[in-house]
Design a protein around this nucleic acid. Structure first.
Lengths: 205, 205
DNA sequence: CTTGCTAAGTTAGCATCACTAACTTATGTT
DNA sequence: AACATAAGTTAGTGATGCTAACTTAGCAAG
């Protein structure tokens, strides 16, 4: 008799106190922004949500399951942003590919903690099937898009290999940006320009 | 009367129990390899070194200071590896630049936890002056090397910008490799080949 | 050789955290 | 109106980071 399937009104109504599950996710995201995943404590998320420290375990197996859910939402978010970038810039075009790269970096900058959850090393998290599937779907979209460009522009060479190359570059840019590593050698670097310059080189070569 | 300056014999002799400072660093590195920085506990390092959990505070300010020292050693290690790669492949050559990139990735693969400490987000760690300086020196070497190539081969364009582009790509490859993200879309990818292909494209344009 | 200073260890204790168990509240159904 | 149960509570366990106060051991000077 899991009464989860038919909540009272529309989208978010749950039992007593409202939707604690989503409230905890929101609180966790807030804390992740402030202090990073390493220093985040579930107890503080409880305090933010105004519940006892035992309450989360009615909704989540683990401290980790909260992070899993956030990572999965992150992949959906990233896929939407990529899709939007392609849609406005034209599928299969150089501009579209570049816009996708910019969207990738923009996402990392907007949600660095979530980005690190998604791509950072966390074996327990990556083994979660939902997260793994979301990630795969996300990457598949990117690779397909690059393959489309290759076929439309008659670019020789393995489309998948090229896509991997582009992803590698854009991912590196995102990491170095959000981890403040660029600041050491090139403060105020224009990463958008960096991508705009490098993308065509890697695409045609 | 800090008696640290003139130890009894040569290099590592300290007071009673031997060199606990280095023993703790070694133990910490071991644990970092096994479980990553997030799940590492100082208490376990103490257990490995065979001392009480209060002992570290005679040698380190903090749990964090152990990590700072490891990060700093990591930058020195990376600089040595880069230097060796250049030395054997010829300074200012394409092969030299590529070898440096491979050395960067090889270091990340050999010491993923240390690599993450060095480049990952950890504001408290990056503010440590020793770590910051080591990092800067390391990057400066790389950039100089690329600049040398540019002048020797009469490549037009800003040498520093090109160096940043190369670093971005190689760093992305290292991250995606050690975080197991390539496995999702391209299991068994040959990263060395990826770098060998991309480097010339980014260098000349 | 003894005395004493002090670096380097110890045990004991604090506050916090993740998580569990057992109890209580309140909600929707019958 | 009664009840079954989802969703919350308090209380408790073991582990952690770190501190305070005590103990041990190495070195130097008298």
């Amino acid at each position: 008799m899991t009464a989860n399937e038919t909540p009272k009104s529309g989208t978010k109504t749950r039992y007593h106190h409202g939707d604690l599950r989503q409230a905890l996710i929101a609180a966790t995201r807030e804390l992740l922004v402030e202090r990073g995943a390493a220093n985040f404590t579930l107890a503080d998320a409880c305090r933010l949500a105004g519940v006892s420290t035992a309450a989360p375990y009615k909704h989540f197996r683990d401290r980790l399951e909260v992070l899993e859910e956030i990572a999965e939402q992150g992949f959906n978010d990233l896929r939407e942003r990529s899709g939007a970038a392609i849609a406005t810039s034209g599928p299969g075009t150089l501009e579209g590919i570049i816009a996708m790269g910019q969207a990738y970096v923009a996402f990392a900058v907007a949600e660095p903690a979530v980005f690190r959850l998604m791509f950072g090393q966390n074996p327990a998290l990556k083994k979660a099937k939902d997260v793994s599937d979301s990630g795969h779907a996300c990457f598949a979209g990117v690779i397909d898009q690059v393959a489309l460009f290759c076929s439309q522009n008659a670019v020789q060479g393995d489309a998948k290999a090229i896509a991997l190359t582009l992803w590698t570059f854009v991912h590196g840019a995102a990491c170095l940006l959000i981890d403040d590593d660029y600041q050491q050698v090139a403060p105020g670097l224009d990463v958008e320009a960096l991508i705009r310059t490098a993308a065509p080189k890697l695409l045609v070569g």
